[in-house]
Amino acid sequence: MKYLKYILGTFAMLVMVFLLIGVVKPQLTYEYDIMVDKPLAESWAVSQDEEKMSEWLEGFQKIEPISGTPGEVGSVSDVYFMDDGQEMVIRETITDIKPNQSISMLFTSDFMDMDYKLVMEAVDGKTKISSNTNCKGNGMVSKSLVALMGGFIKGQEETNLMNLKNTIEGNSKDYFAIIN
């Protein structure tokens, strides 16, 4: 019986420490930059092309418009991903967009909310792409998990942007052809 008390006490302490992590660090903020060897207009066009998203967003399946005009401020869409055979849906709301410059979005799910900004800037005929992300768990357990998974979440952003760089640099689609 004495061992059971120690085990339960240790378990209770671990749970409290786990939950305390979410109180101490309730959100995760990170930035990432890459340089792409393509001009700004093409880099922007590729990043906004739904047909190319599966090439740089791991598990991306489709975007389903919910309200508003797609690609404009205030538009709301459900973004579908496959993760280990499970379908995951994230609600995307465009909060700001400046074509060929930046797009800000709020992603919401049961697990967490993510405030995301992607900025592109021309630098000597190339494109500097920067992302700024702020994640916050939607509950005590989620906040703790976001804090503990910070390295994984940051790593996923790094992978996505490296995939975007490769997709842009490997692009052969002409987004600027004049149709008569």
Rank of each mutant, 00 (worst) to 15 (best):
T29E: 15
E31D: 12
E31M: 09
E31I: 07
I34P: 02
I34M: 03
V36T: 06
D37G: 02
P39G: 13
L40M: 06
L40Q: 09
A41S: 15
A41T: 14
E42M: 09
A45G: 00
A45K: 01
A45F: 00
A45T: 01
Q48K: 06
Q48R: 07
E50K: 13
K52V: 06
K52G: 03
K52D: 05
E55N: 15
L57M: 15
E58Y: 11
G59N: 01
G59E: 01
G59D: 00
Q61R: 10
K62N: 12
I63S: 15
E64V: 13
P65L: 02
P65F: 00
I66K: 12
I66V: 13
S67D: 08
G68F: 06
G68H: 03
T69W: 05
T69D: 11
T69F: 05
T69Q: 13
T69R: 10
P70E: 02
P70D: 03
V73L: 06
G74N: 07
S75E: 09
S75W: 05
S75C: 13
V76M: 04
S77L: 08
S77I: 07
S77V: 09
D78G: 14
Y80C: 10
Y80D: 11
Y80R: 09
Y80S: 10
D83Y: 15
D84L: 07
D84N: 15
G85P: 04
G85L: 03
G85A: 02
Q86E: 14
M88T: 15
V89I: 10
R91H: 08
R91S: 07
R91G: 05
E92N: 15
E92P: 12
T93K: 07
I94V: 08
I94T: 05
T95A: 01
D96P: 05
P99W: 04
N100A: 03
Q101G: 09
Q101H: 14
Q101V: 07
S102Y: 02
S102M: 06
I103P: 05
S104P: 09
M105S: 12
F107G: 06
T108Y: 07
T108K: 08
S109F: 06
F111C: 05
F111V: 10
M112L: 15
D113Q: 11
M114Y: 12
K117S: 14
K117L: 12
V119Y: 14
V119S: 14
V119H: 11
M120H: 08
M120Q: 11
V123H: 10
V123A: 11
T127F: 01
T127I: 00
S130Q: 09
S130R: 11
S131A: 13
S131D: 11
C135K: 08
K136N: 06
K136E: 12
G137C: 00
N138S: 00
N138I: 02
N138G: 00
G139R: 02
M140A: 13
V141F: 03
V141I: 13
V141M: 00
S144M: 02
L145R: 05
V146I: 10
A147Q: 05
G150L: 00
G151Q: 07
G151D: 11
F152C: 07
F152W: 11
F152E: 15
I153R: 04
K154P: 01
G155N: 02
E157N: 14
E157S: 11
E158I: 12
T159D: 15
L161N: 06
M162L: 15
N163S: 13
K165C: 02
K165N: 02
K165R: 06
